[in-house]
């Protein structure tokens, strides 16, 4: 093994070490109790049975939020701090020919979830600060895609 081979082996090992660290970080962070990623849940089998399920419908070009009491709000909704909520997101055609794919994104909550026609996706989040936070649609969905955004209020 000459000097060059040794150097090559060294940098390969260094890269593998960094990769191992990355993989460990990935496994650790996804196993945290408050981690949640979008899951397909069309049959509603895994939803929690409490009243903190919010039905979300994305249509061109608005987000509709229906809470457990059946009250629907458009492009805004209110949640209580330190409570775990589950969003069940679907896409509706509204007054258009097709339902299209949207993507609901809460930058300050670190969650995002696709709204796919014919499929219910669910994701959980727990707000820990009160205040007003933003959400956006980040999957291009047509003319007024950029207006598919709003505020979520977290109250005590």
């Amino acid at each position: 093994m000459n000097k060059k081979m040794k150097l090559e082996a060294m940098w390969l090992v260094a890269v593998l070490l960094v990769l191992g660290m990355g993989a460990g970080l990935e496994l650790y962070s996804t196993s945290l109790p408050n981690f949640s990623v979008a899951e397909k849940d069309t049959s509603h089998t895994n939803l929690p049975t409490n009243s903190n399920v919010i039905q979300v419908t994305g249509e061109q070009w608005a987000w509709l939020f229906t809470n457990s009491t059946g009250q629907t709000t458009t492009d805004t909704f209110t949640v209580t701090v330190n409570t775990t909520y589950t969003l069940v997101v679907q896409s509706d055609k509204g007054s258009h020919q097709f339902a299209v794919i949207h993507d609901l994104y809460f930058p300050q909550f670190d969650i995002q979830i696709y709204a796919v026609p014919g499929q219910n996706n669910s994701i959980s989040f727990t707000p820990i600060h009160t205040g007003t936070f933003v959400f956006e649609c980040v999957e291009y969905c047509g003319y007024d895609h950029y207006l598919m955004r709003g505020y979520v209020k977290v109250v005590a």
Partner: peptide, 20 residues
């Protein structure tokens, strides 16, 4: 985030590391 679920997400994250 399209509803693949956690296991697919971890699989593809791991393979993405390999490209490094």
């Amino acid at each position: 985030n399209s509803g693949f679920g956690l296991h697919w997400a971890i699989f593809f994250a791991m393979t993405s590391f390999l490209v490094v």
